[in-house]
Design a protein around this nucleic acid. Structure first.
Length: 604
DNA sequence: CTTAGGG
DNA sequence: CCCTAAG
């Protein structure tokens, strides 16, 4: 039924939705507030709010036992959320639990305890398989505490929002949180409480808090002030703070048939508008751990979700709007985007769409990914949504590739259809498979270069043209090479131009004249005609030359892949210069250092 | 912007 | 070749 792990996330979402509108219709659809609070069970079974000392104690206990304490998932599963570290049972004994339930909990929970000897299947049926609870979960339950193992099922029926994964869960209810004004600990302790706290006195629901109150709560939670007036943001932050490392969904996204059908409208709007930012994406259905086959996506900056979160809220936030988009966040780098896309492509979020222009939210391994159809060289593929509003300089735009091709065709007069068609399947394959968008686009480009540009001006062409000749043809012409500039600007990437021998010679000469690293001078004085060679290019080429020259075996003929046979005398020159420059300068600098340190130490 | 270095 | 981090 739920065998397909990949569909798990989606199924889960469906379940939530159905539950909210179905069996739980008596509850307020989305915002049914449930709050938690750390309490102590007194001798008579009554609940006593925890004192600060107790909070601290609990915290210490948790830290102390963090390592060796086994995870007892069962009590956890009765909760709306689960702290990522440690188990509540570390500080609340099972007896307390039972007493807790008996004294404070009406029917259902007591029932659960009493009926815990029912067959697992029965309870599963009773819960109408609302969730595809991983088998492992039950296994663990059985191992650890056989007699409580069945509780979750029914409890889940009551509070179907739970999804536990390796001790971390995703809380799908929108405004559930603990407003106990104490940092972190409440979050940990909540797991030890019973699921339904809506009747516990003293609770506070964030949903109803004013901005000021939210700010207060924020301060109480994080120990610092905030100026944010964004309710949604505040609530999320507080929740995250309480949940600790567990990722709090920004909103309640519900996926049905790959369509976004429910949830926080703001967030949906955000998605639609393409304002989905890094954080939103991260906060989608995603878990740090993946025992259930739902792979967690590590943050691409190499931070844990927590770290990222900290980064974001620790800044001097100055949030303008309710939409929360004002959050100042590091602009994802090109590479980041590419890698992210790649990753998501790997995840297999390639879902063909009938409506090419449709933006959809698809669930991929428990993560909601908003995608859009894009036309790449004539074929439609689905790619993770990225806002079309350019925030930095153009990346190798997919559309540009199309232009690129057209231009090339124009020049080449008669592009073989077969050639194009040949490349497309390969492209599609690439996109579908591991290489991802990045590789795909590069692939296209490369092919384009090969197929259409090389014939126009090849290495041979360049070799034949004397640099001096080109020189005289006008230095203003960055490229008198046909349509190179057009192509270049269209592709957004510099056209690869093989280095000619004469260029290399000039380079070497320049290096010998002005020294290694003086690329600007070399370019100015020796490369004025070659405006397409940047200083970086010179540097790169020099690096390559050095590499080549150092690996002396290169002489033979190992460079058959068209890498141009560099005359040995040049190589020798390079090696000479490299040796003259690198080791000696090192020695020199070393000597200088010694000199300096000696003088510093009073010698000399 | 220039350099240096990693990708 | 691209991208970034440092000066």
């Amino acid at each position: 039924m739920f065998g397909n792990v990949k569909d798990y996330g989606e199924t889960f979402q469906d379940s939530i939705f159905q539950t909210r509108n179905g069996s739980l219709s008596s509850t307020n659809q989305i915002g049914n507030p449930v709050t938690y609070k750390l309490v102590r069970v007194a001798g008579d079974g009554s609940l006593v709010p925890a004192t600060d000392e107790e909070m601290l104690e609990v915290k210490n206990l948790l830290e102390k036992n963090e390592q060796d304490m086994p995870v007892l998932p069962d009590p956890i599963q009765t909760e709306e959320y689960i702290p990522d570290e440690g188990s509540p049972s570390q500080f609340l004994q099972l007896e307390n639990f039972e007493g807790f339930f008996q004294s404070e909990t009406a029917g259902p929970y007591t029932e659960n305890l009493n009926s815990r000897h029912e067959s697992k299947e029965e309870l599963m049926n009773g819960s109408q398989m609302l969730f595809a609870l991983p088998d492992t979960k039950f296994q663990i339950s059985t191992e650890l505490s056989g007699n409580v193992e069945l509780v979750p099922s029914k409890v889940l029926l009551q509070e179907p929002i739970l999804f536990s994964s390796n001790g971390c869960s995703i809380n799908q209810s929108t405004d559930v949180l603990n407003a106990t004004a104490s940092p972190k600990e409440p979050a940990l302790s909540t797991a030890a409480s019973k699921p339904d706290f809506s009747r516990v006195p003293g609770e506070i629901s964030l949903a109803n808090l004013s901005i000021k109150e939210l700010q207060e709560t924020f301060r109480a939670t994080f120990g610092r002030e905030t100026t944010s007036k964004d309710k949604r943001w505040l609530k999320r932050r507080i929740k995250m703070g309480l949940i600790n490392s567990c990722v709090v969904p920004t909103t309640t996204l519900t996926i049905n048939d790959s369509k976004l059908i429910g949830g926080d409208q703001d967030a949906i709007d955000a998605f639609s508008k393409g304002t989905v930012d890094e954080e939103t994406a991260t906060e989608s259905i995603d878990t740090p751990a993946s025992p259930d086959g739902i792979k967690g996506h590590s943050n691409d900056f190499g931070h844990s979700p927590v770290e990222t979160f900290v980064d974001h809220y620790s800044g001097n936030e100055d949030f303008e709007g309710e939409d929360g988009s004002a959050k100042r966040v590091r602009k994802p780098t090109r590479r980041y985007i590419e890698e992210t896309n790649e990753k998501q492509q790997i995840d297999g979020s390639m879902i063909p769409s009938k409506d090419p222009s449709s933006i959809q939210a698809v669930s991929s391994e428990g993560r909601v990914v908003v995608t859009r159809m894009v036309s790449l060289a004539g074929s439609r593929i689905q790619v993770p949504y990225v806002s079309h509003v350019r925030r930095s300089r153009p990346r190798e735009n997919i559309m540009a590739l199309g232009e690129f091709r057209s231009k090339s065709w124009e020049v080449k007069a008669a592009p073989e259809e077969g050639n194009l068609n040949l490349s497309l399947p390969q492209l599609s394959n690439d996109v579908n498979r591991v290489p991802g968008v990045k590789s795909a686009s590069r692939c296209v480009q490369k092919e384009s270069d090969k197929d259409h540009l090389k014939p126009i001006f090849t290495d041979v062409d360049q070799e034949m043209m004397e640099p001096e000749l080109l020189d005289s043809s006008g230095d203003s012409s960055d490229d008198n090479f046909v349509d190179a500039p057009i192509t270049q600007s269209a592709s957004g990437r510099k056209l690869h131009r093989a280095w000619t021998i004469s260029e290399v010679e000039k380079l070497v000469e320049g290096v010998s004249k002005y020294g290694v690293g003086k690329w600007t001078e070399i370019k100015k004085l020796s490369f004025s005609p070659y405006t397409h060679r940047t200083t970086v290019d010179l540097k790169d080429k020099w690096r390559n030359l050095q590499k080549a020259s150092s690996s002396n075996r290169m002489e033979g003929g190992l460079k058959k892949h068209g890498s141009m046979a560099i005359p040995t005398h040049i190589m020798l020159q390079v090696r000479e210069l490299a040796q003259k420059q690198s080791p000696i300068s090192r020695v020199v600098s070393k000597a200088r250092v010694v000199k300096r340190s000696r003088s510093r130490n009073g010698f000399l």
